[in-house]
Amino acid sequence: MVHPYAVAGFLVAVLPLIATPGASLALLIRHVTDSGRRQALPVVLGTVTGLYIHATLAVAGLSALVMHSSQAFTAVKLIGAAYLIGLGIWTWRSAAPDTAPSRHQRPLPKGAGSAYAQALLANVLNPKAAAIYLTLDPQFVAPRQHFGGQILTLATAHALLIALWLTAWTFLLRRASHALREPRFKRTAARTTSVVLLALGIRSAAT
């Protein structure tokens, strides 16, 4: 069992990382503005699932292998960067031109392109998310207690915090529901999201 003070310290340490705009927030804004606030849930669930995958891999030692192998780390980083860049390009192209009526906007894809899958892949293919559980978590666990249980406890606290953060953004977007129905606002949100995803992908590939 992780001490409550350790959980609180972990949340304080990880909060700036959560508050920094990233792929999850960009996808949330994109899907909520395009299809309504119900799309927030799959984005949140996809992000949270990705966190648990990283936590599970950390417990199994697989993430440590990736982080300590330059070739494996580079491969994961480039795959994640390519995914974000590709998603950014698709998002930009999915926004109809300003002169086109809203009925000509391309719908969000189903299946592999769903909000859940996009959020999941954006998180899983981010090696920096894995680094949280390899560099930050060890500072808040007791070495003489069950390691796996402590990591999963911290992952749960992390998941709850990021879910609250994304939910808060959903309520902010809900208050702007009138603007969300405007085609011009949807196009602006889509293109802003595209720029964020492209920037994240390029930064991930370059660092």
Results as ranks from 00 to 15, higher is better:
26 A>W: 06
167 T>S: 15
190 A>Y: 00
140 F>W: 12
89 I>K: 00
140 F>H: 11
118 Q>E: 14
59 V>L: 02
177 S>C: 05
200 L>I: 13
139 Q>W: 03
99 T>E: 15
114 S>N: 06
119 A>W: 05
32 V>T: 15
88 G>K: 04
123 N>I: 13
110 K>A: 13
120 L>R: 00
189 A>P: 00
10 F>I: 07
146 H>Y: 06
125 L>V: 07
126 N>V: 03
39 Q>I: 04
159 A>Q: 02
195 V>T: 13
76 V>Q: 12
205 A>T: 06
154 L>S: 09
90 W>G: 02
77 K>F: 00
196 V>A: 10
84 L>E: 05
192 T>A: 14
135 T>K: 02
170 T>Y: 03
125 L>D: 09
58 A>I: 05
85 I>T: 04
122 A>T: 13
24 S>F: 05
137 D>T: 15
98 D>V: 11
108 L>N: 13
36 G>R: 06
113 G>I: 11
98 D>W: 03
204 S>Q: 15
186 K>C: 09
40 A>M: 09
173 L>Y: 06
146 H>I: 10
40 A>W: 04
148 G>P: 05
50 G>L: 08
70 S>N: 11
39 Q>H: 13
81 A>P: 06
103 R>S: 15
175 R>D: 12
70 S>G: 10
79 I>G: 01
187 R>K: 01
120 L>E: 02
14 V>C: 06
75 A>C: 08
146 H>T: 11
73 F>N: 12
99 T>M: 10
183 P>A: 11
1 M>Y: 06
43 V>M: 03
169 W>D: 01
29 I>K: 00
2 V>L: 11
110 K>M: 11
107 P>T: 05
146 H>F: 12
61 G>N: 01
96 A>W: 01
82 A>V: 12
77 K>I: 00
70 S>I: 12
131 A>I: 07
182 E>C: 11
158 H>F: 13
151 I>T: 15
59 V>T: 12
182 E>Y: 03
49 T>W: 01
184 R>H: 12
116 Y>R: 00
24 S>R: 01
182 E>S: 14
174 R>S: 14
15 L>M: 15
146 H>G: 10
95 A>D: 05
137 D>E: 14
21 P>I: 09
141 V>S: 01
63 S>P: 02
109 P>W: 01
6 A>W: 02
19 A>P: 02
152 L>R: 04
158 H>D: 11
131 A>T: 09
198 L>N: 01
31 H>P: 00
207 T>I: 08
33 T>H: 09
186 K>V: 15
49 T>H: 00
173 L>P: 03
84 L>C: 00
132 I>W: 04
158 H>Q: 08
141 V>A: 06
123 N>L: 05
143 P>N: 06
20 T>L: 13
182 E>N: 14
8 A>S: 13
151 I>V: 15
47 T>A: 06
52 Y>M: 10
139 Q>L: 14
153 T>E: 10
186 K>E: 13
60 A>M: 13
181 R>W: 02
194 S>A: 15
153 T>V: 12
162 I>M: 09
61 G>I: 08
51 L>P: 07
167 T>L: 14
119 A>M: 04
62 L>G: 06
134 L>T: 07
129 A>Y: 10
22 G>V: 11
77 K>L: 10
132 I>M: 10
198 L>W: 09
26 A>P: 07
118 Q>H: 09
114 S>Q: 04
154 L>N: 08
201 G>M: 07
